[in-house]
Amino acid sequence: MKRTPVVLWIWYRGGSFKGFQRQPGEPTVQERLEQALRAAGVDASLMPAGRTDRGVHARMQVGSLRLPPGYLPETLAERLVPLLPPDLGLCAVRRAPKGFHSQWSAVGKEYRYRLQLGGAVAEAWRPFVMDPGTEPRLEGRVPSPERLAALLEAAVGRRDFHAFHENSSPRKPRTLESATLHALGDGLFEARLRGDGFGRYQVRYLVGSALLAAAGGLPEADYRAALDTGTPIAGLKAPAHGLLLWEVLYPPDKEPFPAELRRQAPGLPEGPPFH
């Protein structure tokens, strides 16, 4: 009998883990999830859509694996959820479309970064929001949301983002389809970035450097030159705890999660950082 290829939609709060990727002796998302899978009778390695760094959260992380013969996706959903730790959960298990690969089939991702630009951080949001007042390079500077929004928008397009990601990521053109700033109320804002691919720390460097330029701590001309030419700058890497992988995007013929399922997000906890 053949094994059944399935796709998992998982969520997690990154503060409890040392990143996504399995590391010997460390509590990572992959290690805890595969541990739960084994307890549920599925001894398989998870193939993720990508990796998140230590402290980064995910509303939708996608992973694929093959179930043992006779093991149904519905059975896995029922058995797996009770075995997961409090900060890691499951929204859906679906049969994989033909030819599906969780990473290589993806055509894009959306990340969201939360930051407080006025007032005090609400206690429920504190573990999930950057407070610029705690950043030494922003001390005494009050960035304008309007200017920050304009600087984020300036990054949209297909370009070399070399100045905004680690050298460990390949240097190649990437397309940032949109970069917008949204007010959530009480001084809390959310930067939403959607693109076909991101280098390591790219969202954190983009948001942090735009914030620094908006506050006058980095010449705007240097920021824009870095976007246009890839020239390195003394940018700012925003802290991990403000970053959320919102969703992974697939083309219609490889889409494992219908639009209605994406909207409903069954099993996703209420409240920060997912709502």
Rank of each mutant, 00 (worst) to 15 (best):
W9S: 00
G19H: 10
L218Y: 11
P68E: 11
C91K: 04
F198A: 06
S102G: 03
L249I: 06
Q23D: 02
T4Q: 15
H162C: 12
S16K: 05
R147L: 15
H101C: 03
V142Y: 10
L193E: 05
L148G: 00
G55V: 05
A265W: 04
E78D: 11
G50F: 01
D253M: 04
S209R: 06
R159Q: 11
E177D: 12
F100E: 03
K98A: 15
R137I: 12
L268M: 06
G197Q: 02
L67G: 13
G19N: 10
P82T: 12
S64F: 05
R79C: 10
R147Y: 10
P68V: 02
P86F: 07
K109W: 02
G133H: 11
P252K: 03
V203G: 09
A149W: 01
G271P: 08
K18V: 03
Q23C: 09
Q30S: 09
E139A: 15
L152K: 05
H162V: 14
S168L: 13
S16V: 00
R59A: 14
R66H: 14
P232V: 05
L244W: 01
A234T: 11
E260Q: 12
R171L: 12
P48F: 10
V29Y: 00
A259S: 13
P82W: 09
R141V: 10
R51P: 00
E26H: 13
A163G: 07
R114Q: 09
G242R: 03
N167G: 15
Q61N: 05
G208I: 05
E110F: 12
Y71T: 01
R159A: 12
L211Y: 12
S16G: 13
G195W: 03
V42K: 05
G55H: 03
G216S: 11
E260S: 12
E34C: 12
L249M: 04
T4A: 15
E31G: 14
T4Y: 08
G108K: 10
G235W: 04
L84S: 14
L90Q: 09
H165I: 06
P272T: 02
L76M: 11
E190R: 14
L46P: 00
G119E: 04
T75Q: 15
R141F: 12
A183N: 11
A58M: 02
P86K: 09
Q61S: 11
R147T: 14
A265P: 00
A215I: 06
L212T: 07
T229C: 08
E31F: 07
T75Y: 04
Y113A: 02
V6H: 12
